[in-house]
Design a protein around this nucleic acid. Structure first.
Length: 257
DNA sequence: AGAACCGCCTGCTTGC
DNA sequence: TGCAAGCAGGCGGTTC
């Protein structure tokens, strides 16, 4: 599923492909996305990322916001022929971008730029001080907090597991019990792991593909997520799988304390 | 107020 | 082999 590194990969490709281009037409194939169908004649000024949201800046003071949720993908095709699970499309002179989404969770909306809300995106203007003041004493498990988009935007299940594994902190720890030193460690490891994910062009475990249908390489770097029963690379223990908030958490109970 | 839970979805995996 | 049940989970909304 697309998290910060995957969305960043897409945004960079989109920026290269459509920055400065005019949207000639758009088409909605799924009633759930009705309301995002009348985009035409505007130019794309830039493509940015906010957490896991793709933000296309348009030249009429609005932005097109695309959130892929679980199984959403954006696919560039030279033809405007709808692929399987195609839910929405915008077309340019040289080709079309399709939102492909089997599960239909993805969302598309247009928002006036002046109504835009700031996101606590870890790689762009994240305030550690604000986080420590408003989030760090919460009584939820640290893993749940890392995945809370209001606390930090962009981290999903895969990277939350990898970040905590890297820091040696148990996902079961209550957020309020982490020391200042441990929080600093979480921030630093999180940034490093997300940047590495971007450099590897995302984690293609199941669904993730880039704008041109290519897989990333970060799935080969995973130390915890999906590694149930495998040997911990740090201590030789066994990676375990538990449930937190209805989601799978993978961690090493022997060296994550 | 804040923590926990629910619902949206449908392809894939598992079990009988 | 075939079918049904269970699973996957981001996140906004609801409930406790």
């Amino acid at each position: 599923m697309p998290e910060l590194p995957e969305v960043e990969t897409l945004c960079r490709q989109l920026q290269n492909k459509i920055c400065g281009s005019q949207i000639l037409s758009s088409k909605v194939y799924d009633d759930k996305l009705a309301g995002s169908g009348k985009i035409r004649g505007v130019k794309v000024l830039a493509v940015e990322r906010k957490g896991k949201t793709i933000v296309m800046r348009l030249n009429d003071d609005s932005s097109l916001l695309i959130h892929l949720r679980m199984t959403g993908r954006l696919l560039w095709l030279a033809s405007s022929h709808r692929p399987k699970y195609g839910r929405w499309r915008i077309s340019f002179d040289e080709g079309s971008i399709f939102l492909v989404d089997p599960r239909r969770f993805a969302t598309v909306k247009v928002e006036m730029t002046r109504n835009e809300k700031a996101a606590n995106d870890l790689l762009t203007g994240f305030s550690e001080k604000t986080f420590l003041n408003t989030q760090a004493r919460r009584k939820v498990n640290v893993k749940i907090l890392l995945m809370d988009p209001k606390a930090i935007a962009g981290i999903g299940n895969i990277y939350a597991c990898e970040i905590l594994y890297s820091t040696g902190i148990s996902p079961l720890r209550q957020a309020s019990t982490l020391s200042m030193k441990e929080w600093k460690k979480v921030f630093n490891h999180a940034k490093r792991i997300l940047k590495k994910g971007i450099a590897k062009r995302g984690t293609s475990i199941s669904d993730w593909r880039d704008l041109y249908g290519c897989r990333g390489e970060n799935q080969n770097e995973l130390k915890a997520y999906g590694q149930e029963g495998k040997i911990c690379s740090r201590c030789g223990g066994a990676i375990c799988r538990i449930k937190q908030g209805g989601r799978s958490t993978f961690y090493c109970p022997d060296c994550q304390k």
